[in-house]
Amino acid sequence: MSTTQTTGVEDPAVAEATSHADLTAGQRSIKDVLFYVGMLASLGIAFTALVALIALMLVQGWPRLNLDLITHFPSSIPARAGAESAVLGSIWVVGFTALFTIPLGVAAAVYLEEFADKQRWYNRLIELNIQNLAAVPSIVYGILGLGLIVQAAGLGQVVLAASLTLTLLVLPTVIIAAREAIRAVPDSIRAGSLALGATQWQTVWRQVLPASVPGIATGVILALSRAIGEAAPLVLLGGLTFIQFNPSGLDSPFTVLPIQIFNWVSRPQDEFEVLAAAAGVVLLVILLAMNSIAILVRNRFQRRW
């Protein structure tokens, strides 16, 4: 446009009219297409990897994917071996982890978001610590659990020790997710409640928490999904691989699916590899079930502002 004005030969109005007449996107459309293809490709890679993984496990574990797998205890004879104690062990350990994590994590998040004075140095320190703790490798939590819970507290290598260790492991994730969910509740809701003469506690309990349930549920399930797949910290804690009985209480010795799978994979016989693949499918099914619970909860409590 500037050239048309300086030459003075072309009438600027005419030049403008012609530029307005061309309504095609020109160069931009190619970039748009490339970007779109790029996005599709990224999605495709992620999706293909997932499908391949599941298909591989299904095909490999197919011969042993039957009820025997979850109704037999481990055995040194591959044909008789099953993962009953591991499946139940996983459910016990993760169940208690959920029981400990949800109230602790939500309470911590409520304190940090609704009550803590962010100017105070100790609150800032807590925040910083939680973010760092979320990034600590799980094996480190295993060492902590072994030293603190199993030995110092004298709990021994039992379900309770495993649950507490996994609680420590996933608590930062739950706190961070719950804080996000609580922060997403608009302040106008809090103001509306307080202006009616509700106390801050009533406002949190009756307005903020119900409104943040979907976000909290998502965070909790993500965290528990991580917990159920963990082998490393539990191996350190002394999760055994050869347990011929089901857990009967918090003080039972235990094993969990990832440990059982790890054990089977590392055996020389090929049959155990088939078992490992089949147990992997079982683990995935449990994960899927947990995720569907989260989706149900989320839809049940879905809010819009």
């Binding site: 608009p186 106008s188 809701i189 103001a191 509306g192 409640s193 202006a195 009616l196 003469g197 509700a198 106390t199 009533q202 009756r206 307005q207 119900p210 409104a211 809010r303 819009r304 502002w305």
Partner: peptide, 24 residues
């Protein structure tokens, strides 16, 4: 107090009204 932007609670119409009497 009534605010600038309508800020009903994400609840039923009934529960919006009953909230104040309940908490007080």
């Amino acid at each position: 107090m009534v605010f600038q932007k309508p800020n009903p609670f994400p609840k039923s119409i009934y529960d919006n009204i009953a909230y104040g009497p309940r908490v007080t």
